[in-house]
Amino acid sequence: GVTLFVALYDYEARTEDDLSFHKGEKFQILNSSEGDWWEARSLTTGETGYIPSNYVAPVDS
């Protein structure tokens, strides 16, 4: 299955590639091989962008 991640904090995008999000928003991670910045798709907005990996945690299934 796909592991979903949930935002622990609000984040405001600093570049066009970043994804702004709110605490509690859920994400599907598309690429986590880039280190501290993961490519993710928000399940709330459907938008794709980079998120700071230390702002999210796995959702307990």
Score class of each variant (00 low, 15 high):
Tyr50His: 07
Thr48Asn: 08
Pro58His: 06
Ser42Asp: 04
Glu34Val: 10
Leu43Asn: 11
Asp10Val: 01
Leu30Val: 14
Gly46Ile: 02
Tyr9Trp: 11
Trp38Gln: 10
Asp10Cys: 03
Ser42Lys: 09
Asn54Ile: 06
Ser61Cys: 09
Asp36Thr: 08
Asp17Met: 14
Arg14Asn: 10
Gly35Trp: 04
Gly1Asp: 01
Thr15Gly: 13
Glu16Asn: 08
Gln28Trp: 05
Thr48Asp: 09
Phe5Cys: 03
His22Arg: 13
Thr15Asp: 13
Asp17Asn: 15
Phe27Ile: 05
Glu16Val: 07
Asp60Ser: 11
Leu8Ile: 14
Ser42Ala: 15
Asp17Ser: 10
Ser42Gln: 11
Asp18Met: 13
Ala40Gly: 06
Asn31Ala: 07
Ala57Gln: 14
Trp37Glu: 05
Ser33Trp: 04
Ala13Pro: 09
Ala7Leu: 00
Phe21Met: 11
Leu43Pro: 04
Ala13His: 06
Leu8Arg: 12
Phe21His: 00
Gly46Lys: 11
His22Thr: 15
His22Phe: 15
Ser61Glu: 15
Ser42Leu: 09
His22Leu: 12
Gly49Phe: 00
Ser32Asp: 10
Ser42Gly: 05
Ile51Asn: 00
Glu34Tyr: 05
Asp36Tyr: 15
Thr15Ala: 07
Ala57Trp: 03
Ala13Thr: 08
Trp38Ala: 12
His22Lys: 14
Glu12Thr: 13
Val59Gly: 08
Ser61Phe: 07
Ser20Leu: 02
Glu16Ile: 04
Gln28Cys: 10
Ala13Arg: 06
Ala57Pro: 00
Leu19Gln: 06
Ser33His: 13
Leu30Thr: 09
Arg41Ala: 09
Thr48Phe: 04
Val59Arg: 08
Gly24Lys: 04
Asn31Gly: 06
Val2Lys: 15
Phe5Asn: 06
Tyr9Ile: 14
Val6Lys: 14
Ser33Asp: 11
Gly35Ser: 09
Thr3Asp: 03
Ala13Ser: 10
Phe27Pro: 00
Val59His: 11
Ser61Val: 02
Tyr55Phe: 08
Glu39His: 11
Val59Pro: 07
Leu43Val: 08
Ala40Tyr: 01
Leu4Glu: 15
Val2Thr: 15
Arg41Cys: 11
Asp17Gln: 09
Asp17Gly: 07
Tyr55Glu: 01
Glu34Leu: 08
Gly35His: 02
Val56Gly: 01
Tyr11Thr: 01
Arg14Gly: 06
Pro58Lys: 13
Asn31Asp: 07
Gly49Trp: 00
Tyr9Asp: 15
Glu34His: 08
Thr45Tyr: 03
